[in-house]
């Protein structure tokens, strides 16, 4: 089964773009698709995917770091997809802190970001963008040509190797083109022996374990202090 990991900042249009790409993969390539949607607290995107005949499961990370939650579950997700005899499994996760690192070595890594997020955003996003194979830029229909060009240039500066392409999540313009890249994704029987492209954000301090009080006395574990000088 082919595996694609998709990540991107909240509200970039990940689901809309994936729905459009899925449409062409179903229609043109007759693929049987599955999506695992990772989110924090709640999501209603499951219905959107299911309406298109895509097998969907939702993973809510709750109070855990969504990235850690993702990687501890991805193997089971893969097994689920293989069990259901899917041709392609797409995982969709929101990069909530910009330091997210959800991409797996060997699996097609896609990052979706939007033109409205500001031209400095590509520099601010970490491994989620820098280690992606494909960067899909959305909301290109509402900004000027110049801004589109500058934004793509900034993405190029942040990730020099990726394929950069534009998809309009509303009209589907560019989805056919992007779906050709999804077709190239590698296949997996299992994720044994695989590793992340880069380490995930670290944690494990007293606050990870439910501490709510503020003050030095309550800070334990992996704590980092700002330099305010």
């Amino acid at each position: 089964m082919q595996l694609v990991t998709v990540a991107g900042p909240p509200s970039a249009g990940k689901t809309s773009v994936l729905l459009r790409i899925a449409e062409t993969l179903q229609k043109q390539d007759k693929l049987h698709l599955g999506v695992i949607k990772f989110d924090c607290l709640s999501t209603r995107d499951q219905e959107l995917y299911q309406n298109k005949g895509i097998l969907t499961r939702v993973g809510l990370s709750g109070n855990l770091c969504p990235d850690h939650f993702f990687i501890s579950n991805v193997e089971d997700c893969l097994a689920w997809g293989i069990n259901r005899e899917l041709d392609m499994l797409i995982t969709e996760s929101a990069g909530l802190c910009n330091r997210c690192s959800p991409h797996i070595r060997g699996a097609l890594a896609v990052c979706i970001i939007d033109n409205l997020s500001g031209i400095h955003t590509p520099q601010k996003i970490g491994p989620m963008l820098k280690f992606a194979d494909v960067v899909i830029i959305t909301k290109s229909d509402i900004v000027s040509q110049a801004e589109r060009e500058v934004f793509a240039f900034k993405v190029r500066q942040a990730n020099t190797g990726a394929v950069i392409t534009h998809v309009n999540g509303i009209t589907g313009q560019g989805a056919l083109e992007a779906s050709r890249l999804f077709r190239e994704a590698a296949t997996f029987d299992s994720l044994q022996g695989c590793s992340l492209r880069f380490t995930m954000p670290a944690a494990t301090c007293s606050y990870c374990l439910g501490q709510t009080r503020i003050g030095v006395d309550f800070q334990m574990g992996n704590v980092k202090k700002m330099d305010l000088t």
Binding site: I119, D141, I142, V143, S144, E147, R148, V150
Partner: peptide
């Protein structure tokens, strides 16, 4: 990206960058 064949202009497009005309052109 460098040699994109097509540039687009439509009625729905707006400027969204928080820059002056000259800063904007400088950047482009």
């Amino acid at each position: 990206t460098q040699h994109k064949l097509v540039a687009q202009l439509s009625q729905n497009m707006n400027f969204v960058m928080d820059l002056t005309v000259s800063e904007f052109l400088q950047m482009h």
